[in-house]
Amino acid sequence: MENTLNKAHKHTVNVAVGIILRDTACFVTKRNETVHQGGKWEFPGGKVERDENVTDALARELREELGIDVIDSEPFMHIEHDYGDKHVTLHIHTVSSFTGEPRGCEGQQGAWVLLEDLQKLRFPDANKAIITKLEAQYL
């Protein structure tokens, strides 16, 4: 009974995630050491606000975080992941059309990484399924 209560009260975060593609590489960013899952690489994005849909949230987050404007994105996959202290729902889109050059606008490190080299970086557990699907689909 207690586990059910804990689960019901666990904070769920809806996150719009962008896989920014250019040829056989994607742009990833490194999380600040002081935040949840700090020091790990991630596909950029952020929380979906109450008054927006995933596509709008993704465009807003990538503009704020990377300084790019999304022209076109499409759904890639959906992941539910429980980190123990919080539950995340990742709404992942591929972004192959955008204007601007991605860079860490909020002080975060960013890099273009070949899809075949993503496994060499440390990602949060929730991102591992994304990498597996990217490799299967694009390599």
Rank of each mutant, 00 (worst) to 15 (best):
G100H: 11
T132D: 11
K86A: 13
E49W: 07
V113Y: 02
L5T: 14
G110L: 05
T132A: 07
K40Y: 09
V48G: 01
Q109E: 05
P124D: 04
K47W: 07
G100F: 11
K128Q: 08
F123D: 07
T55E: 11
P75G: 03
S96P: 14
V54I: 12
L115T: 07
E116G: 07
K86L: 10
M1K: 15
G45W: 00
N53W: 06
K86S: 14
W112I: 09
A16H: 02
H78V: 03
E64R: 08
V48L: 10
A57Q: 02
K120F: 06
D56N: 07
M77H: 04
Q119V: 15
G104F: 01
K7M: 15
F98H: 00
E135Q: 13
N6G: 12
V35G: 01
F76H: 03
M1Y: 15
K30P: 02
F27S: 00
H9P: 11
S97V: 11
H93R: 09
L114G: 13
K10R: 05
H9Y: 12
A16V: 06
R122H: 04
A8K: 14
Y83I: 05
R60Q: 12
V88D: 00
L62T: 00
K40S: 04
V88T: 01
T89R: 10
F27Y: 03
L139D: 08
K7T: 15
Q119L: 12
V54C: 04
I79M: 06
T12F: 14
H9A: 13
I71N: 15
E42L: 06
